[in-house]
Structures are given as structure tokens and as C-alpha cells.
Simulated scan of single mutants.
Amino acid sequence: MRPLTQAARTRPAPIPDAADEDGRAAGYSPEGPTQRSPEHGSPDRDQPAYDLIELLFFAYRDFVADPDRILAEYGFGRAHHRVLHFVDRHPGLTIAELLDILRITKQSLNRVLKELIEQGYIAQRTGTSDRRHRLLTCTPQGRALAQRLAGVQGERVRRALAEVGPALREPAGRFLLAMIEPEERAAVSRLIGGEASAEVPAEIRAEIRGGSPSADGVRP
């Protein structure tokens, strides 16, 4: 898997732990969004698209609520889910690549990885082209949990598409891609397409992808 662009990596600041806990980012105000006064222009043209902003909020709230209930069984949080998801989807990710995807601090990632490795959900292997690299892979138990979490989110997406019509899947995908910074879109598209790290040996891919463990193999 190719890393995201250098410009994309250096532009945003890493998200601190506090932002992951209570959802507050830089510029957060408990009083809510600032309202424009009429003299600043037409509301139709200058006001934020509150309907879409709030729909995105509520859609995301419910989208993550399904896996949150499962994660609570293991004492895990959303950071654990993100790591499991991308390592399962792209076995052989390096820590640098994972940091590039998640945009969290290295300290935060190390804490989450330590827990997942110690509890047997993630394994590390030495890199092939650079032995300083540690290639991250899900264990059978980790892959079973990752797929269980993806399963409940996939079911919500399928229900929504069935309600609005599957023909909207493509325009919805184009809209979400357009929400991403332009210089990052090609890299994100490659990531979604399943492009794997070039460092992953064929035997590791075969070992990881040789079977799909059932959710019964996951133990809290």
C-alpha cells in the first residue's frame, strides 16, 4: 500500500487523545456554531449547510454505535476498532503507514497497539526489505473481531441502501470522496481498493487470507 502524500501527512495536526474521548477538536465551542448576522450576506449563500452537517453527525453517531456495543465487551474503544479494521484490511501495514491513515499521535497508537498485541489480536513481523520495520497483521482472533465489527456496520449500510435504492451507492461514494482533501483522494481510493503493502511476503498473505474465522473464535 502506498503511503498518503507528503503534503497530506504534514498538513493536519495529530488528533490528541482528548479529541477522541469527547469529540472536541480545535476551535470547539460549547455554545455551538457561530451564527452569521444578516449584514454578512445572504443566508442561502453564506450559511453553513446545517442540514448536511447534522445529518453527517447523526449518521456517524449511529454508524459507530453498533460496533461500540461490541467493543465494550472487550474493554476496547474506537481507536482499537480503527487499528483492527485497517490492519485486517491491509495485512502487513507498517506503523508509519497506520499513523498516516489514522492521523493520531505515535504515543496514542503505541498504547493501543500494545494492548492489542498483548491480548493476542495483533501480531508484529519483521519487515523484508527493511528489518527495522514491523509489519502488523491480525491474528485469527483479531481478524474474527475485525470482521464481526465490520459485519454490523455493513448491515447498517445495506439497510440504508435498500431503503433509498442501490442506485444511490455510486453518487453517495462520489460525495464522500469529494469530502476528502483533493490531494488525498487518489491515495484513499487505492487504500479502499485493497492495495497491500509491498513488504508483505506471499506466505504471510496466504497464511492470513487462508481462512475466515467465525465470530465464535472471538473471546472477550
Results as ranks from 00 to 15, higher is better:
residue 73 E to F: 02
residue 73 E to W: 06
residue 145 L to T: 05
residue 63 F to Q: 10
residue 72 A to L: 10
residue 155 E to M: 12
residue 95 I to R: 15
residue 112 V to R: 03
residue 47 Q to R: 04
residue 47 Q to K: 02
residue 6 Q to E: 15
residue 143 R to D: 00
residue 60 Y to N: 03
residue 194 G to A: 11
residue 5 T to N: 05
residue 11 R to Q: 15
residue 180 I to K: 04
residue 212 S to V: 07
residue 75 G to I: 07
residue 86 F to C: 03
residue 46 D to I: 01
residue 42 S to A: 14
residue 54 E to K: 10
residue 68 D to V: 05
residue 124 Q to T: 13
residue 195 E to R: 05
residue 136 L to M: 04
residue 1 M to R: 09
residue 41 G to K: 09
residue 213 P to N: 04
residue 103 R to S: 11
residue 171 P to Y: 09
residue 76 F to T: 01
residue 88 D to S: 07
residue 56 L to T: 07
residue 54 E to Q: 08
residue 35 Q to T: 12
residue 190 R to W: 12
residue 110 N to A: 10
residue 68 D to E: 11
residue 201 P to E: 02
residue 164 V to P: 00
residue 112 V to T: 15
residue 83 V to S: 05
residue 90 H to R: 04
residue 119 Q to M: 01
residue 91 P to N: 03
residue 138 C to D: 07
residue 162 A to C: 04
residue 10 T to E: 15
residue 101 I to N: 01
residue 62 D to V: 13
residue 60 Y to D: 10
residue 201 P to G: 11
residue 26 A to P: 02
residue 32 G to C: 08
residue 15 I to W: 02
residue 170 E to N: 06
residue 8 A to Q: 14
residue 81 H to D: 13
residue 128 T to Q: 13
residue 161 L to P: 00
residue 21 E to Y: 08
residue 92 G to R: 03
residue 84 L to R: 00
residue 140 P to D: 11
residue 83 V to C: 07
residue 215 A to M: 02
residue 162 A to Y: 01
residue 59 A to N: 12
residue 74 Y to I: 00
